[in-house]
Design a protein around this nucleic acid. Structure first.
Length: 491
RNA sequence: GGUCGGAUGGCCGAGCGGUUAGGCAGAGCUCUGCAAAAGCUCCUACAGCGGUUCAAAUCCGCUUCCGACCUCCA
């Protein structure tokens, strides 16, 4: 059973609710994954890093979580309302390869990036193309329920009919009439009956490469149905948490709820969670706006708006310093601040391992521990958690400087708190190398430090400074501490 | 136009009625051959105007800006 009472902000009710899983200790969580027709940009990564934090914390407090995150590798059209070309086919044509080569390339690229960000892989990572039959079955059931109709080889969901007995706009908090106002009039030759109707199954045009047989002819699934089909298959008709970016609320998730409800006759999701957008100069980072940063551009500093590169952990730390439901604005200054803050945190953790114990403690470690968990229990508030951890950093450094004391018992609690929360929950990791298994390197460094210390003893500072400056040029930094000289490689 | 969310110190960002958020930057001091790291101290803000309250960054109203969604996007 879980050791903490968590509160989650539910998009459905627009307030924080106590988290009570349907079938404790099990938790089912579905997150809308990437559409793999292009490189993931940083905004996408933010969402997955946020849900990684949520996943890690749920597991950490004792839940048995099945985390499902799909890979959308079919069915995505670039035009509005089920028109326009297939994104995969378009990209494949552009790169002169098979659509599935596109899928493979960007799926692997996506996983590489997520690994660099030190996120855990989901329990299941299902693909749309691997679940065509499930999507067809679901579409058949919705037709049988009288809430979808076939029109010239394409199947549409009947929103207006669905709305007679269900509330279609619950997630976006909008009424049907308001939604209708935003849509254009249907043309005379339109296959759709209602302006809000969306496709469950789409008839393939002759040039369309990704195609499958169905009761309605050769075609491919609509975008929304894959999530309904796969979440139902792996998590059941009703499951605990469904997540994704806020931009998915109005269309994708609204349609998902409708489809699942129509097919399974129950509310599909107990807690809907949505992450906010990453912005650049106050404007949302998106593919269409062309202001997206690729993770690799960020790591190497090759993007024109960047002054330098930032490591994956510095970027992740930057994201974790903001709550997942707030927008986060991207800038060099903010990134640099995060880079230094992250270094300070990691340095303190190294110091923590060297701390000496006393008979009693001069600060309340148990209270610190509790404040950290309180922060996470309050809708996964990682910025507050980090603020508390930085209070701990101050304590650690003070103890190291002999200005504060810590008991043996408190020291082990402090170590556990930092290890658990920084590494297991926040998913941060050490990037610098201070000593390694490279015997040659270690011996060379020991020799250099020895020569430098001899020079220092003889007050031959030009020599000692030459050694330190020379090492700095090859990214090795030297620090003279009370315990002796240490070195580390800047990564 | 409709719906929703914001405006916090030099920068980033918490906060949801009474407490120092935190990080970064800046200034001074301690330590150090000098650095670096670390510690201490300082800088202490809540878009504007009204209102409610013993008490408001926090609640209510109005105003001004900004953004998101309504069209593919995490």
């Amino acid at each position: 059973m879980a050791s903490q009472q968590i509160e989650i902000y539910n998009t459905l009710t627009r307030k924080k609710e106590k988290f009570t899983p349907l079938h404790p200790p099990f938790v089912g969580m579905y997150v809308c994954g990437p559409t793999v027709y292009d490189d993931v940009h940083l905004g996408n990564c933010r969402t997955f890093i946020s849900f990684d934090l949520i996943y890690r914390y749920l597991v950490h407090v004792g839940y048995k979580v099945r985390y499902v995150r799909n890979i959308t590798d079919a069915g995505h059209l670039e035009g509005d309302r089920d028109e326009g070309g297939d994104k995969f086919a378009k990209k494949a044509k552009l790169e002169q390869v098979e659509p599935m080569e596109i899928v493979q390339k960007y799926t692997l690229g996506f996983r590489d990036v997520m690994r660099m960000f030190n996120t855990l892989p989901p329990s299941i990572e299902p693909t749309a193309t691997g679940h065509i039959s499930e999507q067809i079955e679901m579409t058949k059931e919705i037709i049988a329920a009288g809430l979808a109709y076939e029109s010239n080889g394409t199947v549409y969901f009947n929103v207006e009919k669905y709305s007679q007995k269900n509330n279609y706009g619950t997630l976006s908090n909008r009424k049907l009439e308001e939604l209708l106002e935003g849509t254009r009039e249907l043309g005379g030759q339109d296959e759709k009956k209602g302006r809000l109707d969306f496709a469950l199954w789409i008839k393939a045009k002759p040039e369309h490469i990704m195609r499958w047989p169905s009761p309605w002819g050769i075609g491919f699934p609509g975008w929304h149905i894959e999530c309904s089909a796969m979440s139902t298959k792996y998590l059941g008709k009703t499951f605990d948490i469904h997540g994704g970016g806020m931009d998915l609320i109005a269309t994708h998730h609204t349609n998902e709820v409708a489809q699942s409800q129509a097919c399974n006759h129950c509310e599909p999701v107990k807690y809907w969670m949505h992450t906010n957008m990453l912005t650049v100069n106050g404007v949302r980072m998106s593919k269409s706006a062309g202001n997206g940063f690729l993770p690799m551009e960020l790591f190497t500093g090759s993007h024109k708006l960047l002054e330098k590169g930032y490591s994956p952990m510095a970027v992740k730390f930057f994201m974790l310093q903001t709550h997942y439901r707030s927008t986060l604005d991207f800038s060099n200054e903010a990134l640099q601040a995060s880079e230094k803050g992250f270094d300070r945190l990691m340095n303190a953790i190294r110091t923590l391992e060297k701390l000496k114990v006393s008979d009693k403690s001069s600060s309340d470690i148990k209270a610190l521990h509790q404040k950290c968990y309180d922060a996470m229990n309050d809708d996964f508030n990682s910025p507050i958690l980090l603020a508390n951890l930085f209070d701990g950093v101050k304590t650690i450094n003070s103890i190291h400087d002999r200005k504060e004391l810590i008991s043996k018992e408190d020291l082990s609690l402090l170590k556990k708190t930092f290890r658990d929360l920084v590494f297991d929950v926040l998913g941060l990791k050490e990037e610098k190398i201070s000593s390694n298994n490279d015997e040659l390197g270690n011996n060379l460094m020991a020799l250099i430090i020895d020569i430098r210390n001899e020079a220092k003893a003889k007050k031959d500072f030009p020599t000692s400074d030459k050694l330190r400056d020379g090492l700095a040029k090859i990214k090795i930094s030297i620090k003279d501490t009370k315990e002796g000289t240490t070195w580390e490689i800047e990564k």
